[in-house]
């Protein structure tokens, strides 16, 4: 079973990510549907406990702003770890649209981004998305990456007050 780093520990990942052009009927297991599928099918009853929505980097949370709060699982795709759009998307989802469910990073990320990703509101990371080079296992505790810094200057999702208000 593929793994997921969630709430700082590794758990089984029972969720599938359906392809961007997905159409047809949903599998019988928890899955992330692409945003376009969601927009086309949101009238039909979709159970938020087993159906989440994923966005690609060029897609906009504004496109389904009114639905975000009713969902429990969202995912944002990183086409490459160098493509930083997902950081902004995550903050919008959390801060502007007040999403409190699980927010996953999917696609391609590297362990050294975990700290920034979690500051921007991601709280779940597919291990498949984590680029570990040629290794099968991460060579450091993933929690250590998440806790790389104990000081942060800016306000962000996990710290509403900038340092200058906390000094």
């Amino acid at each position: 079973m593929p793994k997921l780093l969630k709430d700082k520990s590794l758990v089984d990942n029972g969720w599938q990510v359906l392809p961007k052009d997905f159409a047809g009927s949903l599998p019988n297991a928890p899955c992330f549907v692409p945003l376009d599928y969601w927009l086309a099918n949101k009238q039909s009853p979709l159970n938020p406990d087993t159906v989440g929505v994923w966005l690609d980097a060029e897609q906009e949370p504004e496109q389904f702003a009114d639905d975000i709060k009713s969902l429990k699982h969202l995912a944002v795709n990183f086409p490459s770890f160098m493509d930083g759009r997902g950081f902004s998307i995550a903050r919008l989802i959390r801060e502007r649209y007040q999403f409190t469910g699980e927010l996953r990073a999917i696609g391609h990320i590297v362990p050294d981004q975990l700290f920034y990703l979690s500051r921007c509101g991601f709280d779940a990371f597919c291990l498949e998305a984590l680029d570990l080079g040629d290794e099968a296992e991460p060579h450091h505790q993933l929690e250590d990456y998440l806790a790389a810094f104990s000081v942060t200057y800016q306000a962000c999702v996990n710290q509403e007050q900038p340092l200058f208000r906390r000094r």
Partner: peptide, 10 residues
């Protein structure tokens, strides 16, 4: 503000 800004490193 810009140092280690988590949203704008990529």
């Amino acid at each position: 503000w810009s140092t280690l800004h988590p949203e704008f490193a990529f």
